[in-house]
C-alpha cells in the first residue's frame, strides 16, 4: 500500500480548488476611531519542542524562541510549550525535535487598528491590555467574548487577533458591534 501504488493521472490536475479566506466578504469595517480588517497569515505552523529539545529547535531554525507571552521575529508564543511560526519556512529536519502542525488554515486573523482599538477590546477581552502592561510584541491566549483568542499587540494602537476560522462571522460581528456601540457614545 501507500503512495507507490497510486497511479498519477497526468500532469494537470482535474480540478482547480479555489482558496477562500476565513472572513472573506465581511471586511474591512471602519467605525469611529477604529478599523477592522482581515490579515493574511500566510503559512503558519505550530512548533512544540519535544522534551529537552528547545535548544535543538532554536538551532535548526536559526533563531531564539520567545518567552511566555512574547514574540521573537516570526515566532510567537502560542500556548504552554507551543509556538506559532508565522510566514516561515520550516525545514523538514525540525520534525526530529518538535511536533510540527500546519495551522495555516485554522485561524481567522484580524487586525484591529486605531486610537480606540484598546477601548473596543475592553468590551470583549477579559485581560489587561493597557499599553503599560501589554506592550508591542506582547501576546496572550485568552477569550474574545465566548471565543478563543490569541492576541498580539502589533503597534501602539494595533492588535492582531486570532480566533477559530469557523467563528470568523461571529468574530467580525462581535467586534464590529462593539465598535458601533463605542462610536455611538457621546
Amino acid at each position: 500500500m501507500g503512495l507507490s501504488c497510486m497511479i498519477r493521472k497526468g500532469v494537470r490536475p482535474v480540478v482547480e480548488l479555489l482558496a477562500k479566506s476565513p472572513a472573506e466578504g465581511l471586511l474591512p469595517y471602519a467605525k469611529g476611531a477604529v478599523e477592522l480588517s482581515e490579515l493574511a497569515l500566510g503559512k503558519a505552523a505550530s512548533i512544540a519542542p519535544f522534551k529537552g529539545q528547545l535548544d535543538a529547535v532554536e538551532k535548526a531554525l536559526g533563531q531564539g524562541f520567545p518567552k511566555v507571552g512574547r514574540t521573537t521575529g516570526h515566532v510567537v508564543w502560542f500556548s504552554q510549550g507551543q509556538y506559532l511560526a508565522i510566514a516561515m519556512d520550516i525545514p523538514d529536519a525540525l520534525g526530529k525535535y518538535a511536533a510540527i502542525t500546519d495551522q495555516s488554515d485554522a485561524w481567522c486573523a484580524l487586525e484591529l487598528k486605531g486610537a480606540a482599538a484598546e477601548d473596543v477590546l475592553a468590551r470583549l477581552v477579559p485581560i489587561d491590555l493597557r499599553q503599560s502592561q501589554f506592550k508591542r510584541g506582547h501576546c496572550a491566549r485568552t477569550q474574545l467574548g465566548h471565543m478563543p483568542l490569541h492576541i498580539t499587540r502589533t503597534g501602539n494602537d494595533a492588535f492582531r487577533l486570532l480566533s477559530f476560522r469557523s467563528m470568523a462571522g461571529t468574530m467580525v460581528h462581535e467586534i464590529s458591534r462593539a465598535m458601533d456601540l463605542l462610536a455611538a457614545r457621546r
Binding site: 501504488c5 497510486m6 498519477r8 493521472k9 482535474v14 480548488l17
Partner: peptide
C-alpha cells in the same frame, strides 16, 4: 477528482494517507 488514482490495494478499508487534489 484526485490527482492520482486509488484502488482497493492502495486504499483498503481503514487505510489513510496523503493524496493530492487539484494540486
Amino acid at each position: 477528482l484526485l490527482d492520482m488514482l486509488i484502488d482497493n490495494d492502495s486504499f483498503p478499508f481503514m487505510a489513510c494517507g496523503p493524496v493530492s487534489v487539484g494540486g
